[in-house]
Design a protein around this nucleic acid. Structure first.
Lengths: 105, 105
DNA sequence: TTACAATATATCATATTTGACATAATCTAT
DNA sequence: ATAGATTATGTCAAATATGATATATTGTAA
């Protein structure tokens, strides 16, 4: 199973085994998850590029290291709102976000 | 006071009088609100373009007319997640969303 | 006008998201 | 290898978002 597909499914909150696929995503669900994961990946990329720890970012947004880790992992328990707020607090502009989303399949 | 500014403040959940300004938004807050309102406006635009009522859209996403109204109004009680999901269910693509966000100040 | 459809606004019980915390796993020098 | 730093994962009470409902307001045709 492709890792990218696995992450998508996990972001939906499903437990995904390593041997079989049995979940069909609608195009909207697919687009939503792609978008979310793209933003999550951008966050990690931006943070590391700026030599910040997850704790550094957490303090920037008055949150905790564990929540930043969950954001970067695309955990189902984090909202796109939080990811966007964090990206903006880490130096991204709306145009940066637009680029990330545009690059989505 | 500019109407655009008023809507931004209201989206932050503040009560804004018509005669005075006393709230400063950080650049991130400003960007976040601009982004959210741009998506909300796009939703209304897309819905009317497609000759759908708020009730129609509500059924598409298993929600209610009142919540769709709140989305379009940029109400503080609605998440960007919900707005994005709704846009995707109303026919927008990720690229459409990217364009909307890119057009943000 | 008046009746009717569409939209706006308020409230609320329920559901989801949140920061915090504990602790495990992983990396990175020495 | 060992210590210290960083990141990952699980849990939970509190905060926030949600659909539903009621009702008010606005639009729109007759």
């Amino acid at each position: 199973m492709l890792q990218s597909k696995k992450k998508k499914l996990e972001a939906k909150g499903w437990q995904v085994g390593s041997t079989s696929d049995f979940l069909k995503l609608s195009p909207e669900e697919e687009a939503y998850i792609e978008l979310k994961l793209a933003l999550c990946n951008k966050l990690k990329q931006l943070r590391t590029k700026n030599h910040l720890t997850q704790n550094d970012v957490a303090k920037l947004i008055n949150s905790s290291q564990s929540r930043v880790a969950k954001m970067e992992a695309g955990d189902p328990s984090v909202s796109i709102d939080l990811v966007i707020k964090t990206l903006l607090s880490t130096g991204a502009t709306n145009k940066d976000l637009a680029k990330v989303i545009a690059s989505t399949a």
